[in-house]
Design a protein around this nucleic acid. Structure first.
Lengths: 207, 207
DNA sequence: TTTACCTTGTGAACAAATTCACAAGAACCC
DNA sequence: GGGTTCTTGTGAATTTGTTCACAAGGTAAA
C-alpha cells in the first residue's frame, strides 16, 4: 500500500469521532462537507483522505454513516482488541491507567510496571504494580502489542530498549526525551513541555 | 515575520533540549550536524530552521552553545515567566499540576479549577482547587496567559468559550474533542486515544 | 601569507501535502 | 424521460516543507 501520511491518519481518527457522534444521533448519511466542517478541514481533504483506502461514498448523497464508521474502524485497526502495558506508576502512569477513553476503543491495559520498590506490589487503579525486572518474561506470555512509557526522562531510553527487545513493536512515550528506535517500531511521543513551548512561541511571535 | 511552520517550532524545542544538555557538559560549540544527529533530522534542516530567525553560527566552526541556547529561548518565548491555570482537578489535572517539567521552563501554575463541589476546596499538590465559577473574576486580576484543559470531553467546549472570553489567548487541551476557537487564539490539543489509534494503524497497515 | 580544511547560509531542485475544479453518478421532481 | 440539483472521486495545479549542493567565510598550521 502507498505510504499514508501521518496527518491523514490523524484526520481519520477525527472523522471517526464525529461519525460515532452522528451514528449515536441516528443519522443515516453525511457529506464530506459536513465532516469537514466539524473537523476543521475542507471537503476536498476529507474525500482525498478517504480515497487512499477506497471509495465509500455515493455521488449526490454522501457517505453512509454506519458503513463509513465501520470502514474507518477497520482501517485504523480498531476492529480488534489491543493489549497494552504501562511502564511507570507515577502520577502520569496512574492517570493513564484509569483513563476510560482507552478501554472504550479496545485498548486493554494488562499490567502496570515500575522499578521503585516502594511502588512495586501496591495497587494503582486496580492494577498491582509489577517489578519492571519481569518485563521480558511477562511480555513473552502476555502477547502485548503496545507499551506506554511514563517514566522519567533519564530512564526512558534503557526501558525502551528492553521493551523493543521483548518484542513489542509500538510505543507511546510520555517521557520528555527523543528516543532512538529501530525503524520497524512505531513510536508516538507526547511531550507536554514541548507543546507548552509551542504556545509560548505563538504568544510571543504573533503580529 | 514570515509564517513559521509548526514542524519548525517543534524542532527548535528539540534543539534547545540538546543544547541545554551540551551546555551542562560545558561544550563551547556545536555543529548543525551534531545537533541534527541527536534530533533525528539533517544538518540542512537544522540550518534552514535557524535561518528563519537569523544567522547564529560561524562558518567553519559551528554554533556557540551558550549563545544559540540563549537565542532559541528567546525565539520560543522562554525568556520570561508564563502564568498558567489548570482546569479540571481529576487524575490528569493532578498529574499536570505536579509535573516538574513545567516550572523548570518558566510555566508557573497559578490555580487549579474544577466544577465538582466534592473537589472544590480540597488540596491537589499544594493547590486549593477553586470553583470554576470564579474563572472570569480571577483571570482578570491574575494575568493568566495559558489555560490547560483537563476536563471531560463534553465539558470542554463550554469551558474553552469562557476561557477565551476571559481574555486568555493560549490553550492546551487534553479533552478528547475538537475545539472550536477563534483564530487569534493558540490551541494545542493532546489526544491520547488518537495517538494510540495512530499506533494501531501502524501495527495494522505495515508491509 | 598561503594552503588545507571545516561548516554555515541559502538559492534552487525536489518531494509531499493540500486545494482546485470538474466530469461522472445518483436522487428527485415534474 | 428529461431536467435539475447534489455530492463524490480524482487528475492537475498550487502551496508548503525538505533536501541538495555549493559559494562564502572562517580556523589553523606551516
Amino acid at each position: 500500500m502507498k505510504r499514508i501520511a501521518e496527518s491523514t491518519v490523524r484526520r481519520l481518527s477525527i472523522y471517526l469521532r464525529f461519525l460515532e457522534e452522528f451514528e449515536a444521533r441516528g443519522l443515516a448519511t453525511i457529506s464530506s462537507d459536513a465532516l469537514a466542517a466539524r473537523g476543521g478541514t475542507t471537503s476536498a481533504q476529507v474525500r482525498k483522505d478517504l480515497s487512499f483506502f477506497g471509495s465509500f461514498g455515493k455521488r449526490g448523497l454522501g457517505y453512509s454513516v454506519p458503513e463509513l464508521t465501520r470502514r474507518l474502524r477497520e482501517i485504523l485497526g480498531l476492529g480488534r482488541d489491543w493489549r497494552v502495558i504501562i511502564i511507570g506508576a507515577g502520577k502520569i502512569g496512574a492517570a493513564l491507567a484509569q483513563y476510560a477513553g482507552f478501554r472504550q476503543r479496545g485498548f486493554h491495559i494488562v499490567n502496570v510496571y515500575d522499578s521503585d520498590p516502594a511502588k512495586i506490589g501496591r495497587r494503582v487503579d486496580g492494577f498491582v504494580v509489577r517489578d519492571i525486572a519481569r518485563l521480558e518474561q511477562d511480555a513473552a506470555g502476555d502477547d502485548i502489542q503496545i507499551a506506554v512509557l511514563a517514566v522519567p526522562g533519564e530512564a526512558a531510553q534503557p526501558v525502551v530498549d528492553r521493551v523493543i527487545d521483548s518484542g513489542i513493536r509500538a510505543i507511546m512515550n510520555f517521557a520528555p526525551v527523543q528516543l532512538q528506535i529501530p525503524e520497524h517500531v512505531a513510536l508516538k511521543t507526547v511531550n507536554m513541555a514541548m507543546e507548552l513551548e509551542g504556545l509560548s512561541f505563538a504568544l510571543t511571535n504573533r503580529d
